[in-house]
Nucleic acid binder design. Structure first.
Ligand SMILES: [Zn+2]
Ligand SMILES: [Zn+2]
Ligand SMILES: [Zn+2]
Ligand SMILES: [Zn+2]
Lengths: 145, 145
DNA sequence: TCTTGAACCTATAGTGACTGTAGATATTAG
DNA sequence: CTAATATCTACAGTCACTATAGGTTCAAGA
């Protein structure tokens, strides 16, 4: 136990995640198993800190754990061309763009619905009416597709 | 078994969902248990069709099953004022708006990253560099919050 | 040295909204 | 009658954690 040894709690505070999250990453093979103390507690070093930082930052940017797994393998091989890195990032970007598009059309639909509600009885509420109408006659966009 | 009896497969086709989804809705109490044939197979009628349509349309508009459960209870009580309906819809709308905001800032971040990659070796790739940098020095927004 | 309390350990279950599978039974068309 | 299709139950898997229970280890103060 030297001064530079890092406990799981300290690592979690530094990385801004929960202790269980770190154990989870270890369990699914995203973080390597660290050495243990005589009492069986995990001891981390700078290499683990770096790897966990990479994972957390990628998660904050919305990458899936599978994508991150791929990016980690690639980042361990600095002489390879970065085409695959680029592909992973671009594919994630296009997923984000798609999600925004879907949510934006949802937003106009919901705004329209909410605006039409005049605050009477439920039997006359346009919100309920629109939701109950599966023909989508009241709807702007084809959210069913 | 009259002509108007609807099998679970037929109901699923009409509603645009899987058979298992219907059984799942029944299991969590969102759809009432239908009567059965002598051979134990579910038999639906127009009431079920209506209720499932309401659920599916609401799901397409992004409402959670809990919100839908609330909306269904309300829609069964047409004389009540529609304030609660309005509140549920508005609260969902504001969640959608928030999601769009988060994804939009993610999008600019990712676009920036992808643009900076000049297609060399991984060791020099700006995408990997940004992801590895947990200080967020290369980042536009505070996606860590 | 002893004690207390925080931090750590494993194992397991739960989240949301389904989807997929296995193995058995029912129904329908030819 | 047979073969294909549909349905039945029960359970596991998805994603990325999060929470809990019940136990052990560690560090600091008296
Ligand atoms: Zn209303
Ligand atoms: Zn619609
Ligand atoms: Zn690159
Ligand atoms: Zn950042």
């Amino acid at each position: 136990m030297t001064l530079r040894d890092i406990s799981i709690g300290r690592l979690a505070r530094d990385a801004g995640c929960k202790v269980q999250t770190i154990r989870y990453y270890e369990q699914i093979g995203l973080l390597p198993e660290p050495p243990r103390t005589a009492g069986n507690q995990r001891v981390y070093d700078k290499v683990h800190v770096k790897r966990l930082s990479f994972i957390r930052h990628s998660r904050e940017l919305g990458f899936s754990l599978d994508a991150i797994r791929e990016l980690l393998v690639l980042s361990d091989d600095p002489d390879q061309p970065c085409e695959t890195v680029d592909r992973v990032a671009k594919s994630h970007l296009s997923e984000v763009v798609e999600k925004i598009a879907r949510l934006t059309s949802l937003k106009s639909e919901l705004e329209r619905m909410v605006k039409q509600c005049k605050g009477g009885r439920i039997g006359a509420c346009r919100i309920i009416e629109v939701l109950a109408d599966h023909s989508h006659a009241h709807c702007l966009t084809d959210h069913s597709a």
